[in-house]
């Protein structure tokens, strides 16, 4: 494993590294079918086992290009990819409907995506719906009791990370020693668009995690639960966190999971401290006028 210097572009290899040997069956989720074999090729979905337990895998594949939507290459999530990912989630929820919490299969999201389809046809049809659909599906899976865990192994960029990652119960990230990227935009682009000086931004980013690029800064903001130091530690870390998510759900501590839990974690880690104060003030102010609205 020492020879690996990056996992970018290695979505499929990562699946094999994490799951029980030879257990991954692409598209093998009960009831899951695709309109054509190469549908949404930038997304890989299927079932696998982890320590013998059946789980659903949703990963990016940076290698193929979508033959029908030319802007979708290099792991970009296009419309077909977004809906394919959403379907994998809905079929997983259906497969375990009615089962107790402990038997709801985990969903593992392997994240290496540079963005959403930025094309004209995408806008004509509504790219925003495809990624929105996948996010809602993940939120539903999480609230239905499935542990949803994301592992960032390469690129987790802006809207694509919102779509594939930020709806998970917990998010892990491979250390940036392996070129892992988590950001909305690189600092150079932020500097250009906000007309800020790049040296100044770079200096500020060392102390202010709020606009800096990289897993470390997301960690401080509560956006990343744990940083994994090396690729060969991914599997064990994933297994540990899936167990932890099962436990928290069994104890009904869902407030510590998902986007809301990351808000709380961000405050604990000192990254986002105004958020909570704003919400508290809103509740106080509403309480003072509530009668007018609840008894009108």
């Amino acid at each position: 494993m020492d020879a690996i210097d990056t996992m970018i572009g290695m979505g499929r290899e990562t699946i094999d590294m994490i799951v029980d040997a030879g257990s991954f069956v692409e598209n093998g989720i009960p009831g899951f079918t695709l309109p054509c074999a190469d549908y949404g090729p930038g997304a890989v979905v299927g079932s696998a086992k982890m320590d013998g337990r059946v789980c659903t895998i949703v990963a990016n594949d940076a290698m193929p290009s979508n033959p029908r939507f030319p802007v979708v290459t290099s792991g970009i999530i296009g419309m077909e990819e977004g809906y394919k990912m959403a379907m994998a989630v809905y079929r997983s929820i259906e497969a375990d409907a009615g089962k107790p919490l402990a038997d709801k299969r985990p969903l593992l999201l392997i994240v290496d995506t540079p963005g959403n389809g930025p094309g004209k046809v995408e806008e004509i049809v509504g790219m925003n719906k495809a990624t929105g659909a996948y996010q809602l599906a993940l939120a539903e899976a999480r609230k239905t009791g499935h542990p949803v865990l994301a592992v960032v192994i390469g690129r987790a960029i802006s809207g694509a990370f919102l779509c594939h990652g930020l709806q998970a119960d917990q998010i892990l990230s491979l250390s940036d020693k392996y070129g892992t990227m988590i950001h909305v935009m690189p600092l150079t682009s932020i500097a250009r668009i906000t007309k800020q000086d790049i040296e100044k931004l770079t200096a500020l980013s060392k102390t202010n995690p709020v606009f800096a690029a990289g897993p470390e800064f997301f960690f401080r903001l509560g956006g990343v639960e744990e940083i994994i130091e090396a690729p060969d530690a991914i599997r064990d870390c994933v297994l540990k966190h899936i167990d932890e998510i099962y436990r928290l759900k069994a104890e009904r501590q869902t407030d510590r999971l998902g986007p809301w839990g990351r808000g709380e974690l961000g405050e604990e880690r000192g990254g986002r401290v105004t958020r909570k104060a704003v919400m508290q003030r809103m509740n106080e102010q509403f309480a003072a006028v509530a009668d007018r609205y609840l008894r009108a």
């Binding site: 939120a139 606009f211 903001l221 986007p259 958020r275």
Partner: peptide
């Protein structure tokens, strides 16, 4: 236009919270 780049990471995380609540 979505996330405020000057505080991009906080904005991004807030977007996910909003989506989560829409499902609730």
């Amino acid at each position: 236009g979505g996330v405020r780049l000057h505080e991009a990471n906080a904005g991004l995380l807030a977007h996910a919270e909003v989506m989560d609540l829409l499902q609730d």
